[in-house]
Design a protein around this nucleic acid. Structure first.
Lengths: 240, 240
DNA sequence: GACTAAACGAACCGGTTCGTACACTTTTAG
DNA sequence: CTAAAAGTGTACGAACCGGTTCGTTTAGTC
């Protein structure tokens, strides 16, 4: 016993009054080990998917052993979930640091789009993890309490920019912030997630720098054009 | 022998001069068997990914046996590739039937977007297969000769609409047709591919009908607004 | 009816993979 | 200092799974 039931969080912040200065070192080392495993596991899961990933392969590339993976994370799925949570926590933290409340709404919106674009570009592993989780119909994500708690500040940021733009009069169309976030995200995400099939079919390397900057501006322009457009959505005639 | 090297296409159109009318029935049955396997395999692969899919599971749900899968397709990967080719052939065929050359460019563009939107919505399994193939970095796709031959008529269609719009003067911006296709596709694709994670995080059911039609119009409006917009792409100031 | 080749089924094999038992060391608490 | 608790490595088991072997049935040909 004491072998199982260890995973799922540190939980050992000296409960009693005494400081337990000694414990810090151990705690520190444990965190290091966990993080080391987490990093390698992220790569492995991102590269091969959940069932494609090999626990042994992860263990080999870690400075610890497979035994430790099960000690800390309980199971392959437990490890996967931890990786997923870790990745999401990462982006949420960065998103929360966005400070775009002031200044020209158009410029702020361009910035925000540029940020999302760059983040996805810089974090293909995160994109892959999300993709994989979708293949599994977000079933692991749903089991996670920590992922449920995370609030998504980027929506508030978008909403704020939108409101200011409407007050100023530059944005003449009302758009749901989440819808807009989806419009932005989808393009940024797709560029990374589908780069291989899309690139192959159309004979393009989506990683190329010139294309990257062209796409970045394209998305920004499209969103701005949409927001400035007064037209409340035209009808298309039904099937001829 | 004669056991391997059977897969990869019918190839048995009576080589000699004799008609071989009888053969038709047999050929027919073979096609039925193959298609039966292909259908079940598509579901299994779409549901569980390449390594997650179980050949035994596919065999069980087929009216034939595992033996037949290997008889017809050679290997698990061979089967997967066949499924992928089949799926791509499907959409290419439908795309080629689009007739949008005439009429109002704006209306034609709305139609085209609506078509892509609806196709993705109606074929989640296809979306999943593409997703899975991207996880594997399109490595199987690259091995396929049949997928290389397929030309993508939708790009020509887009280009034609764009040209007409520019001639008419309604479209004031020049956009690369493939870029535009990507902008359209990404949104339609994302709505399906990421519906689970996105839905969970934002507490939304992306399958809901009201949201579906709202998103459909949103994308159409965004693209049209972009195309009408004369501005050749504004700069965003660098990091403050 | 005799013959051939394709279509098929059951049982099986060998390698892989997740997870664990056991034995051992290190750290922390009293 | 001592005992409990936490951390660690090795080696292995049991299930699983892709792929094959071998033999049988069916369809078509002469």
């Amino acid at each position: 016993m004491a072998d199982t039931e260890r995973f799922d969080e540190p939980e050992d912040l000296d409960a009693d009054g005494l400081p337990g200065r000694r414990r810090v070192k151990q705690q520190d080392r444990t965190t290091k080990t966990r993080d080391d495993i987490l990093l390698v596991a992220r790569e492995e899961f991102a590269a091969n998917g959940l069932s494609g990933a090999r626990v042994d392969a992860i263990a080999e590339r870690t400075r610890t052993s497979k035994r430790m993976i099960y000690y800390h994370f309980g199971s392959k799925e437990g490890l996967y979930l931890a990786v997923l949570e870790h990745a999401y926590t990462g982006i949420r933290k960065v998103e929360a640091e966005l400070r775009l409340a002031d200044g020209d709404p158009v410029e702020a919106m361009r910035r925000l789009i540029g940020f999302t674009f760059d983040y996805d570009e810089a974090n293909p592993d995160f994109i892959r993890l999300v993709t994989i989780e979708n293949i599994h119909r977000a079933s692991h994500m749903r089991q996670s309490s920590s992922l449920g708690r995370l609030n998504v500040s980027i929506i508030d940021t978008i909403a704020a920019i939108l409101r200011r733009g409407q007050e100023t009069g530059v944005f003449r169309r009302e758009v749901d912030p989440i819808d807009l976030h989806m419009l932005i995200s989808s393009f940024c995400f797709f560029r990374i997630s589908n780069r291989h099939t899309f690139g192959h079919i159309f004979g393009r390397d989506l990683g190329e720098a010139t294309m990257r900057s062209r796409h970045r501006v394209l998305l920004q322009d499209a969103v701005i054009a949409l927001l400035k457009d007064p037209q409340p959505g035209g009808n298309e005639p039904e099937e001829a």
